[in-house]
Design a protein around this nucleic acid. Structure first.
Lengths: 340, 340
DNA sequence: CTGAAAGCGCTTACAG
DNA sequence: CTGAAAGCGCTTACAG
């Protein structure tokens, strides 16, 4: 008497059960599951019916062990930057689902001493077919090296051109447009709240800001270093307040700082936007939940993550650089100045 | 001449390479990797050294295929509720990492017609050792059934007692304390902004609110149905404004609605908290980014997720109910009323 | 305390 | 167009 298969023992159906049910070899079932061409139409039909009848679902671990793919895509990011990741995760998961892949998330601590070893452990255990790197993790040299050592395909969500594929918006152009908005509203004295200097996005946004002012034959009225945190925006508000000739508008290199600046300015008794206009960058969830709403730039994070998954999973291994369209989100944090 | 192992061919080391290097059988290497007892001290040392030297990392798919565990934990949630998930994800990933597990996230759309089939597909492909269900997904009967059919261990992040393990805070008590805060501040007319009636948390919070008022021999001045979205808070502001005898304080069953209410009230020209005090529930990220900051309740989401992972991965399969401590977050959205 | 053998459920490389 | 065999890299169940 032959051994019982799992199926007969009550477990989930395996490829053997399907093969038997459809009167074909397991290889043919495999062909159908992987949508390989060259299966006779009638056979195809029989196998599909058997799969349906038996509720067969191929087991990921078996496929991964036997084959060259793991059907897993990773989304690695710095924990602190979690305002981003909701949208990224949505886009990535959605696309993974369509393509039969699964998403593993790996929140990392930028400050951890064993950051790189975490990354390595995770990669060698899971062997993902590809990894999406969110900013600013995508600028982290050591992590990039570790990825390369493991031979992991990556897509960076970054505007940088070098080393592998990346997807981003044109930060410089977006910042220029946002600055122009302030100029058009009649602001004469415009300040800039900087992000961390080692992040590419910080640099690009300031470049765009400066370019727009230059084109208008102006100079920044005030520049102050922040670190992209809400707290650094709060701190900046006091400095702004103490300026002898206060800027009437401030361009903050991201939303978190912009929100901190707004909240603290208001706490100190300054009206926004009457006494201080503010623009940010990112369209963080909170940007549309405060009053007045924060005028900012939106990156199409969902679409970016979706395209990243396609790049990682697809045939083409050529590095490429994709620039996505950004969107200005006009809200109430900018005041028209009569004196323009 | 024997076949070359992968290692010799340049690939990552396998258990066979380690066994050879340490002069033991693969079974002994397996024992060391899994920290099983009963390995001679000297042997243990030799194997550990070999692992270190060869940078051996067991491959998850092979372990999952051969053994009873997949080393994968799932975090399933409704996409719309993503304010939560940053903290949940942090806690879950951290604990998974410590225990040698990996986290798969599955954002689901509540409105999707194929919700249950998504869940089923995901479960049967990945075979996670356990799944954490975030609210309000944890209250979804059909999804719970699907989990049960697959024999998946689950932990619900919910205050409900029935059917399996759950971890939550005492919503009733927390709501009572928050209401008491309003009463102590001297508010005579207090309104309540409800969440969706089918969510357990909604009901519990209203119960606590009502209990506190009852104890103070008061009645709710105003009750209005919301759906936990920012937009429904915005809509409620206009209704509040039109009340003949406006409540001076409103308890919103969650933060998103509270923030909508605050923003819209201010847009309509009412000062917060002078004309309207507001309290929320959840301590969403935005609650501390607005001015005035929103007074609310914080659930220890990180710790909750960490404990959930321990429950799912541990030996004990007894269902249990864990109540975690909540924390009142006092900010500026509540005004002291002199007339008290 | 340690190991030899079988097997998990697929894909790969090959043959016809 | 289809299939038989080997093998992926581990754990399980068993033996000693």
């Amino acid at each position: 008497m032959p051994r019982m298969t799992k199926r007969e023992a009550g477990g989930p159906a395996t490829i053997i059960d399907v093969a038997r049910e459809a009167q074909v070899s397991i290889k043919t079932v495999s062909r159908v599951v992987n949508a390989e061409p060259g299966v006779h139409e009638e056979t195809l039909k029989r196998v599909k019916e058997a799969i349906e009848r038996l509720q067969y679902r191929p087991k990921l671990s078996a496929r991964a062990l036997a084959g060259a793919r793991s059907f897993i895509v990773g989304l690695f990011y710095f924990d602190e930057q979690s305002a981003f990741i909701g949208n990224l995760q949505r886009g990535a998961t959605q696309t993974c689902r369509e393509l039969g892949y699964h998403l593993i998330v790996e929140p990392l601590q930028a400050s951890a001493t064993d950051l790189v070893s975490h990354v390595e452990r995770s990669l060698s255990a899971l062997r993902p077919d590809g990894v999406i790197l969110a900013p600013p993790l995508c600028d982290h040299a050591e992590v990039l090296q570790a990825m390369q050592r493991q031979g992991t395909r990556i897509v960076k969500l970054s505007p940088r051109e070098l080393q592998g594929s990346c997807i981003g918006i044109d930060d410089v152009q977006a910042a220029r447009e946002l600055t122009q908005l302030l100029l058009d509203a009649g602001h004469q004295r415009i300040g800039f709240l900087q992000g961390p200097p080692d992040q590419i996005a910080s640099q690009r946004r300031q470049q765009g800001f400066s370019a727009a002012l230059r084109a208008a034959r102006r100079k920044a009225a005030w520049v102050w270093p922040g670190d992209f945190t809400f707290q650094s925006g709060v701190a900046a508000a006091r400095i702004w307040q103490d300026q002898p000739n206060r800027p009437s508008a401030v361009f903050s290199a991201n939303d978190d700082m912009a929100l901190g600046l707004m909240a603290e300015a208001r706490r100190l008794g300054h009206q926004v936007p009457e006494a201080l206009s503010v623009v940010g960058f990112d369209d963080a969830p909170a940007a549309s939940m405060v009053w007045p709403g924060l005028t900012t730039v939106r990156q199409p994070l969902e679409d970016m993550a979706a395209r990243a998954v396609h790049l990682l999973v697809g045939q083409n291994t050529q590095p490429c650089r994709i620039v996505m369209p950004h969107r200005l989100m006009l809200r109430q944090s900018v005041q028209e100045r009569a004196e323009a």
